[in-house]
Amino acid sequence: KELVLALYDYQEKSPREVTMKKGDILTLLNSTNKDWWKVEVNGRQGAVPAAYVKKL
């Protein structure tokens, strides 16, 4: 499985998103959308802005 690093804090704004903190390591589930990537963090799945994460 592919991992990404959170470059910034992000507070979810809808139920389809997830909150992450700078430095979090997230499991990347889907990166086909260039703006929003689906990730899993702390057992929750949701979208985060692609510009806020970097593939490891």
Rank of each mutant, 00 (worst) to 15 (best):
E2C: 15
K1D: 09
N33W: 06
N42W: 08
V18H: 04
A6C: 14
G43M: 04
K34E: 11
R16E: 15
Q11S: 11
V39R: 00
W36D: 02
Y52P: 02
T27Y: 12
K21D: 04
Y52D: 03
S14H: 11
L5Q: 11
Y10S: 01
N33E: 11
A51G: 12
V41H: 15
V53F: 05
A50Y: 03
N33P: 06
Y52A: 12
E17A: 06
K55T: 09
Y52Q: 05
T32F: 10
Y10D: 01
Y8C: 15
D9M: 03
K13T: 13
N33I: 05
D9A: 07
Y8A: 10
V53A: 02
V18P: 01
M20P: 00
M20I: 14
R44T: 07
A47T: 14
A47G: 08
L26H: 00
E40N: 04
L56M: 10
K54T: 13
V53M: 06
L7A: 03
E17Y: 06
A51K: 13
K22F: 05
V48K: 01
P15S: 12
G23D: 05
E2V: 14
K34H: 11
D24F: 05
G43H: 06
Y52V: 07
K21W: 09
E17N: 06
D24H: 05
K34T: 11
Y52H: 07
L5E: 11
K34C: 11
L26N: 00
Y8I: 11
T27L: 14
K21E: 06
V18D: 01
L29Y: 04
A6V: 10
K1E: 10
K54W: 09
T19L: 03
L3W: 13
Q45K: 11
P15G: 10
K54H: 10
S31T: 11
L56A: 04
W37G: 01
T32S: 14
T19K: 04
I25W: 05
K1T: 12
Y52S: 11
G23L: 02
L5D: 01
A51E: 12
L26A: 08
Y52R: 05
N30M: 08
V53N: 01
G43S: 06
D24R: 01
G23P: 00
P15V: 10
E17G: 14
G43W: 04
K54F: 11
R44S: 06
G23M: 02
V53K: 00
V53C: 14
L5C: 12
K55E: 07
W37I: 07
K1N: 11
L7I: 11
A51Q: 12
D24E: 11
N33D: 14
N30Q: 11
